[in-house]
Design a protein around this nucleic acid. Structure first.
Lengths: 123, 123
DNA sequence: CAATTAGTTCAAGAACTATTGAACATTGTA
DNA sequence: TACAATGTTCAATAGTTCTTGAACTAATTG
């Protein structure tokens, strides 16, 4: 297992790949949860998403999110900490991430997304 | 063949479906071309997209775009005129369509999109 | 060192997507 | 009425995506 998984450079982030990533309900839920976590300035571990799907299925979706350039994975011990690549996304696709997140928030019920007050607090 | 194809109501337009539609390069090119055509206040016919794919393949993508709520098809004689459902999309997902279109415009080369001056003029 | 924890990778299967060409339907026109 | 033009629908196929469980790796803990 390589220590740090591969991430594309900013300029390698492709619009179709990003949109495809966001079009999957599980991945959209992951991104949405990461976005809420941003507000308390902290990252989330893989395990924080166990409610969304099984472990190996989550690992599959994490890989897609990493490879599309949507999120960054930082390895610390046996944990992987993840956060959105907001600056890179904003530079490549201005306004896109926020438009998707706001649209998702409007449909939180329909999309079965965690509501705002369920943000995981930082340690 | 039914006279007017089915279109979802505004409130039935789903975010994941819309994003999935936009994540396909051919469909993104169609939407992009429709958006450029908006600027001269006119619609496009199916045949105007013949450069993007074969006829039956295009019909497949047109159906997806219609069923996702991204575009509207109007039948006139043997022709089908199409346009973006901009108002409905703006109401459901504010800023999303423009963010995608601007992002696509930035990557027009990479995405092999027609450039702005190739807008088809209205009759 | 053995056991535990955290997460990935692999293989297999089910389901879905895109693409193609042939057949079809509908309208307009000679 | 025949013929051409515009698109759709159907069937087949190739390829992709999602999901699952089992096996695995790597770091931590007793």
């Amino acid at each position: 297992m390589s220590r740090t998984p591969h991430h594309p450079a900013r300029e390698q982030i492709e619009l179709p790949l990003v949109l495809d990533c966001l079009s999957d309900p599980i991945r959209l839920a992951i991104v949405y949860q990461l976005a809420q976590q941003e507000r308390v300035s902290s990252e989330l571990r893989c395990g924080d998403f166990n409610g969304l799907a099984g472990k190996s299925n989550l690992a599959y979706h994490f890989a897609k999110l990493r490879e599309s350039g949507l999120m960054l994975t930082r390895v610390v011990g046996t944990n992987r900490f993840m956060r959105l690549r907001r600056e890179d996304l904003e530079a490549r696709f201005p306004g896109l991430l926020d438009a998707v997140l706001c649209s998702a928030a409007k449909d939180a019920d329909r999309l079965q997304l965690s509501v705002e007050c369920e943000v995981v607090e930082a340690d």
